[in-house]
């Protein structure tokens, strides 16, 4: 069973909560799908059992020995990536989408496409099972495809090791990487917080989840920062046919546990918050 934990807004506690789930009783496979800001490896310190190269699209480069500065490429580029800068045709790498069109139409064959091959996917073991995570090379694109690769690997590892539960720690936002994280999963958990931004992002996240015919469960983290808004979230969820399966208080012990490289469950197993997380997990699994 694949369970995705997402949030819309960043910093709501998604990774800390996913990590806590991963260190409850059962053996799990953890897949860190937040490939451009992967963090769980810091807590789990997994071994390196395999490493795969991920090709994150292509970038166009110009060979100025061949370029006759005709500008046909610039006229065709829809990403505003090719312009005349000081009368010389120039590609802005950060704008290039890697579509290949310029390389195909260049009359002097001066443009070639190079692969972005610096991103990696790793998998290994950690103290409560197996872990797979992606590391998108800084500034690269297509993290949705890397997420797919991470999920495939996680499924394979789960099968090979007879592990049933896969926890996907998702990226923030509602774009491609998030869509890749939730497509075809069994359960989706949205971690929100009672702030204007948290509420707003959660509502957008719910819409994207519903687009995939999934019914998300909600967790309100740090509910005591604004109890009134937490109640509003309960009410909004109820009116929209969604279930809030728990709320957690703001607890500095969450931060302490992270600083000590542990999850809250490992750091303070008998704390109130750990018990609540345990309860939430049993509700999800029931």
């Amino acid at each position: 069973m694949e369970i995705a934990v997402i949030s819309g807004k960043g910093g709501t506690g998604k990774s800390s909560i996913s990590a806590a789930f991963a260190t409850l009783n059962t053996k799990v496979v953890v897949a860190d799908c937040d490939v451009d800001a992967a963090n769980l490896y810091l807590l789990f310190n997994p071994t390196h059992e395999s490493e795969d190269v991920y090709i994150a699209g292509h970038k166009a480069i110009i060979d100025y020995n061949l370029c006759n500065n005709c500008g046909i490429c610039a006229n065709h580029c829809r990403f505003d990536a090719i312009n005349f800068i000081e009368d010389k045709i120039t590609i802005t790498e950060t704008s290039c989408d890697g579509c290949f069109l310029c390389s195909r139409i260049c009359p002097t064959k001066a443009i070639s496409m190079v692969r972005n091959d610096k991103s990696r996917m790793y998998s290994g073991s950690f103290r409560n099972g197996k872990m797979v995570y992606g590391r998108l090379s800084p500034g690269e694109e297509n993290s949705g495809k890397l997420v797919n690769m991470v999920r495939e690997k996680a499924k394979q590892v789960a099968k090979e090791n007879g592990i049933e539960t896969i926890i996907l720690d998702g990226p923030p936002g509602i774009g491609c990487p998030v869509i890749s994280t939730i497509t075809g999963v069994d359960k989706v958990l949205i971690v929100t917080e009672p702030t204007i931004s948290g509420l707003h992002d959660m509502q957008r996240t719910v819409k994207i989840v519903q687009k995939f015919n999934l019914k998300p469960y909600l967790i309100i983290n740090k509910y005591d920062l604004n109890p009134e808004m937490s109640l509003d979230i309960y009410e909004w969820s109820f009116n929209n046919g969604l279930e809030v399966i728990g709320h957690l208080p703001f607890d500095p012990q969450m931060v302490d546990s992270m600083v000590h490289g542990k999850t809250i469950i490992e750091w303070r197993p008998n704390s109130d918050i750990s018990k609540k997380i345990n309860l939430i997990w049993s509700k999800i699994m029931s």
Binding site: D36, A37, T94, L136, G139, P172, G175
Partner: peptide, 14 residues
């Protein structure tokens, strides 16, 4: 800026 370090971030800081 958007979070992360991929294209949306790069496009903003560029």
């Amino acid at each position: 800026s958007p979070p992360g370090t991929s294209c949306p971030f790069v496009q903003t800081v560029a």
